[in-house]
Design a protein around this nucleic acid. Structure first.
Lengths: 346, 346
DNA sequence: ATGAAAGCGCTAACAG
DNA sequence: CTGTTAGCGCTTTCAT
């Protein structure tokens, strides 16, 4: 009825509890023979360690916290999957933690979250990972964490991280559009409090610059990472006296909104206007036409960060690691129509 | 540096640890005056209970497990939100648990999951909640749980649940299409191991029957709850000698696939063909045209189930509760074209 | 209404 | 290599 305990196993195997603990935790200082005996007892009794007890007495609870502030369901699920994959393999538990990255008490909130369950450490995703003041406090509380952030290269600031080169990917998308022959390319920017938004804008501008196309203020529209802002932003672009022939949305949801705006205006994508997104979320595959985008494996990125965190807790030194989203060309982008055949919005 | 403990508070307030514990757990056998003193000490010291310790010594860990087997990111996030809302308010913790509902060892897997962290109980979502044999075993292990299931009415089988009337909602959608004048209505069925699929099919058939329209086998197509099956299924329907004028997808993802299929075939929705989904996921709002669907508040449903579970753990009696998804009419459905003006697929 | 003692199941820090 | 002794921070007895 009652779960089997370590003592039960110890008794059965004729050893001390500590020895069983050693076997369970895979410490090497156990004679193979003894280990076998214990292993057998564990199997026979179908013993499962009680994680609470282990966490209470040990230095940490073999549990990592995944912290996010993101409205994008696919993104969150992908991150959770990555974290779970790493945790399952390394025998850690996962606690999820949605939060408001702009809350003034962020650091204390996270500290409490970590302390209440004696978490081993936190994986901080964007944009939580970008609140530097809060992170400093968090570090002062001695809470281990690994950040995931948007940067072109290793920040080497002494704090472990996984960095994703959004600028480069945005450059690739913009270059793709330029190579197709587009010159007027609209940019629907994502939320200001995501550093990724700035990085992606930088990639866009850099590409334009390299191709000798001056960037125009009226083609860059502010907004958030939501469908409606994509819709509205695209409407504004398409209403311009000289509308862009291509639109780059800062993520797939924005791009989906832009796609809807184009379609609602009676335009055909990609013939009348090309649209590109960013992220490779199901959105991009599940629209018609499917969206050209930048593939960003949030699951793999978070899995990597989780492994880094766990390695770090184990006392290992771990090097930061970079990821590059890759361009995925799909049906929503094509060369612009020749001027003569340009079709007006209805 | 080190988190404040109950003993620290006790010392500060000049009472015993047990008294502090009483205050924290809101037991009434404490003199108001003493309680105030303790409360003040807690505040001054910024005390946060250690959940591990509490869970280890108490009967359960004030943690509920949310169990699901679902590929739909929006749905999962909505469920997590609901569970988190209830947990936050009632001071419980949440553990998430994706699993394979068809695994033979499901009951034991869940038992171990519960025991390892001394979970207070489990919220079982569909289709896990429909594996009756496994649930019987789980009950025998004395793991408390609340099920969420697809049923037209309270099963009254002694096991607490929240039930959702999918049949009724599917009936409403089908009736809506019939009222618009559609007679040939295609049905894209979802996965066989979801009871909801059968319920929704039943609603479809019941509505047809009530409107005096015989159901036709060739208009009902099997598939899973994924975009691609929606796309393929819709293609098959549209390729029929006499294609349907409306298509009802068993969820929004299927419907989004159908929408893409229609568009890829050069058809205009809703003028050439109407499409309806089920679930009111962002998919349905973020497509063009937006999808007519049945609003299903997974967050509220799961929040309710979580509250029921917690109440039950506290020893309360709780009545089962039913939910009815409601019809949401949007741009993807309209009356069929008059025969004469019917447009052929390109 | 409050407190003292005895654990919950495990691991840390030492012995041997 | 293995065992012993103390706790981890809280809640449960059971007293008072």
């Amino acid at each position: 009825m009652k779960p089997v305990t370590l003592d039960d196993v110890a008794m059965r195997a004729g050893v001390s509890a500590k020895t069983v603990s050693r076997v369970v935790n895979d410490e090497r200082s156990v004679r193979p023979q003894t280990r076998q005996r214990v292993l057998r007892a564990i199997e026979q009794l179908d013993y499962r360690p009680n994680l609470l007890a282990r966490g209470l007495s040990g230095a940490h609870a073999y549990t990592i916290g995944l912290v996010y502030d993101n409205p994008n369901a696919y993104y969150i699920i992908a991150m959770q999957q990555g974290a779970l994959a790493a945790c399952d393999e390394l025998n850690f538990n996962l606690q999820i933690r949605p939060c408001n990255s702009r809350s003034p008490g962020l650091a204390e909130e996270l500290r409490d979250f970590a302390n209440r369950s004696r978490l081993s450490g936190l994986v901080l995703t964007t944009p939580v990972s970008e609140r530097t003041a809060a992170l400093r406090r968090l570090a002062a509380y001695r809470i281990p964490f690994v950040r995931i952030l948007s940067a072109a290269r290793d920040p080497r600031d002494g704090s472990p991280c996984v960095y994703v080169d959004d600028r480069d990917a945005a450059y690739a998308i913009t270059a793709h559009l330029l190579q197709l022959g587009h010159v007027r390319i609209g940019f629907l920017r994502g939320g200001r409090h995501h550093h990724a938004s700035a990085e992606r804008l930088r990639g866009y501008k850099d590409a334009l610059h390299d191709y000798g196309v001056p960037w125009r203020r009226e083609l860059v529209i502010d907004g958030d990472y939501v469908f409606d802002d994509g819709f509205r932003g695209a409407r504004r672009l398409l209403d311009l006296a000289e509308p862009p022939t291509a639109i780059f949305g800062c993520n797939d949801e924005i791009a989906a909104g832009a796609l809807a705006a184009a379609q609602s205006a009676g335009l055909q994508v990609p013939y009348d206007v090309s649209i590109a997104g960013f992220e490779d979320s199901p959105f991009s595959r599940h629209s018609w036409p499917p969206l050209t985008t930048a593939r960003q494996r949030a699951d793999i990125i978070v899995e990597r960060a989780t492994r880094m965190l766990i390695a770090r807790i184990g006392g290992g030194e771990v090097a930061n690691e970079g990821f590059n989203p890759e361009l995925v060309v799909r049906g929503s982008t094509a060369p612009p129509r020749p001027k003569s055949r340009q079709r007006r919005r209805r």
